[in-house]
Write a protein that binds this DNA or RNA. Structure first.
Lengths: 192, 192
DNA sequence: ACCTGAACACCGTTCAAGT
DNA sequence: ACCTGAACACCGTTCAAGT
C-alpha cells in the first residue's frame, strides 16, 4: 500500500480562527466550560490539539478571549425616534438572552481581563444616553450601570434557584430592576 | 535512631475546615485563583494534599463553595433610624470593598451554582426595602437589582481599564450607578 | 480517626520532525 | 506553511496502607 497521509487533510476544510472558536463555543454550550480542553477541541476539529497553536499562539488564553469577544460584543442599536428608553429595554432584553444562551461563557465575560470586548458595547449605550440629553460623564456612568446590571443580574439568575424560597419569575425581576435604572436615568435626562 | 514520625504531626494545629478555607483564601489573594491547587494547599498547611479530602469529601468543588460562602455572605445592617438609603449605600460600599479585596474569588461568586451563599445577603436587603414601604414583590426585586448591580459593576471594574479610554474614576462611577437605582427605589417607596 | 504515598487518568504546552 | 507525535511538568482524585 502506498502511504497517502495527506488524504484526510485534503478532504477537510482548512483550520481557521473562526472555525476554532465556533467549535469551542459548541463544546461549551453543549458540555460546559469545564469540558473545553485543547485535546477535545482538536478532536472536534479532526485535528491534533497542537495544530490549534498555529492559529492561536497564546494557546488557551487566546481561545478563551476569543469566546468572550464572540459572545459579549453586542452594541445597542440607536432608537429610530425619540424613545431612548425603548431602545435600551430592547438591548437589555436581547443581551440577557444572548448571555443566557451561552451561559458557559458568562464566567469568562465577567472574569477575563479583556476590556476591549465590552468597550464597544458600553460606547453604544453611552451614545444613546448622550443623545437623550445626559451630560457626558453621566452618560458614561449610566452606560456602565446598565452593563453591570445586566451582566450581574443574569449571573445571579444562572446561579440557580435558592432552595428555601418560592420559585422566582426572573423575567419579571429582570424587567423590574431595569426599570429602576431607567427611572433614575430619566430624572437626569433633558427629555425625560 | 528511633523513628518518631508523629512528632511533626503533634507539633502542628489540627486540620479543620476553617483552617483549610483560610489557607486557600490566602493563596487566592496572594497568587490568584489559577494557582490554587490541592497540592499547593496541602503544602501551605504542611500536610499531604490527600488529607484535605478527609475534611472535604467533595474535594475541590467543596473547597471552592467554601470560599464563596466565606467571602460573599455579607448581610446589610438595618438603618438605625429612617434613613434606609444611607443603610443601603453603606452596605453597597462595604460589599464592593470586600469583593475587591478578594478579587480572585469574584469569578466563583458570580459563577458557582451555590445560591444559598447569596440568599442571606439578599434577604437582608429585602427586609430594609420592605420596611421602607415597598410592597413585598418590589422589595425582593429591588434587593436583587442592588445585589446584581454591585456584583456586576465590581466585576466590570476588576476587568481592568480599556486601553483607548481615559482612566476611569471607578469610585465615582460606582456611586453614580448606585444612586440611579436608589432614585428608582425612592419613587416606589412609601416614605420617599 | 486521621493522614500518607503511590498510582491513574487526565491537563496545557514545548519541541523536533514530517509533508 | 501547516500539522503531527512524543515528551514534560503538572493536575484532581482513588485506594490501600500506615499510625
Amino acid at each position: 500500500m502506498v502511504r497517502q497521509p495527506s488524504v484526510a487533510a485534503q478532504n477537510r476544510p482548512p483550520l481557521t480562527r473562526e472555525r476554532i472558536i465556533e467549535a469551542a463555543l459548541h463544546i461549551v454550550d453543549g458540555q460546559g466550560l469545564g469540558r473545553l480542553t485543547m485535546r477535545r477541541l482538536g478532536d472536534a476539529l479532526q485535528v491534533e490539539a497542537m495544530a490549534i497553536y498555529h492559529h492561536m499562539p497564546r494557546g488557551k488564553e487566546e481561545l478563551l478571549d476569543g469566546l468572550v469577544s464572540h459572545v459579549a460584543v453586542f452594541p445597542a442599536r440607536p432608537p429610530a425616534g425619540e424613545d431612548w428608553r425603548r431602545a435600551l429595554r430592547e438591548w437589555a432584553t436581547a443581551y440577557r438572552a444572548r448571555l443566557t444562551a451561552h451561559s458557559g461563557v458568562l464566567p469568562l465575560v465577567v472574569t477575563r481581563r479583556n476590556p476591549a470586548a465590552l468597550s464597544d458595547t458600553a460606547a453604544s449605550l453611552r451614545e444613546i444616553l448622550r443623545r437623550a440629553g445626559l451630560p457626558e460623564g453621566a452618560a458614561a456612568d449610566g452606560a456602565h450601570a446598565l452593563l453591570g446590571y445586566v451582566i450581574g443580574q443574569t449571573a445571579l439568575e444562572l446561579r440557580g434557584p435558592s432552595p428555601g424560597e418560592p420559585p422566582t419569575d426572573w423575567d419579571a425581576r429582570f424587567t423590574a430592576g431595569l426599570e429602576l435604572i431607567l427611572t433614575g436615568l430619566s430624572s437626569r435626562a433633558r427629555r425625560p
